[in-house]
């Protein structure tokens, strides 16, 4: 019975509700910001990584992109977040939410780059050859023929990536930020409800709703893009 009373308290007690909504808002802002940064960064890195130019001006960015993907995918997210918060942006007064967006954006950019790269490579090489054989440049062929087909293949995996990102933002509490997970912990602590189960359940439901809504949107987009296909 206490469980249900606590749940109700989470929504009716002004202090608890405000805490949970503050946390939810921060989680939402960090996720949205990081997803945007990740998409832009990932697309750039994927395109640079796929270029075959042998010009030295292209070789250097390509090497940088390689190192970036390797380092980011090869180290723990929490460590990356600590380095951002306590080393690179350890500046008094620098807004923490910006630090978090940059850290998560850089992290998901590496994964999204790999997804986009795989999506572009999954388009039959014959499509590129046909474009080039008509005299189109590699850029035009990419833009008009390959990328439109790659997007269909890439949307589901980018959706997954963003879902993973949203859930992973919960570790910002480790640098003392007040996101949804931190808020649930706070509301459940000794000074407040003195029971974790209700606020944790509420937080879980919030995460679930966000993720479910996103899955729904991704499915919608996917279905629309595939409407021209026979399958």
């Amino acid at each position: 019975m206490k469980f249900f009373n606590d749940i109700i308290a989470c929504f009716t007690n002004g202090k608890y509700l405000a805490a949970m909504l503050d946390g939810l808002w921060l989680t939402f802002i960090i996720s949205l910001g990081a997803a945007l940064v990740g998409l832009v960064l990932g697309t750039l890195v994927a395109l640079v990584g796929l270029s075959k130019s042998k010009h030295p001006l292209m070789m250097i960015p390509r090497a940088i992109c390689n190192v970036y993907v390797t380092v980011v995918r090869g180290t723990p997210m929490a460590l990356q977040l600590f380095i951002m918060a306590f080393v690179i942006f350890a500046i008094r007064g620098f807004p923490q939410w910006v630090t978090a967006i940059i850290a998560f954006g850089i992290n998901s950019g590496a994964y999204i780059a790999e997804n986009i790269r795989a999506g572009i490579l999954s388009v039959d090489i014959g499509q590129t050859e046909a474009g080039r054989a008509l005299g189109l440049t590699s850029g035009t062929t990419m833009l008009k023929i390959v990328i439109p087909q790659a997007i269909k293949n890439v949307i589901p995996s980018i959706g997954n990536e963003i879902i993973a990102l949203i859930k992973e933002t919960s570790i910002v509490s480790m640098i003392g930020m007040y996101d949804l997970t931190a808020a649930a912990k706070d509301v459940g602590s000794g000074q407040n409800l003195a029971s974790y189960i209700a606020p944790m359940t509420v937080a879980a439901v919030f995460y679930l709703i966000i993720v479910y809504a996103l899955t729904f949107v991704v499915k919608k987009i996917e279905r629309r893009l595939r409407s021209g296909d026979k399958r």
Binding site: D124, G126, Q127, E129, A130, G131, I145, P148, Q149, G228
Partner: peptide
Amino acid sequence: MVFQQFNLFNN
């Protein structure tokens, strides 16, 4: 050029 696998633009 005409290819063995046709290579019409699928999109």
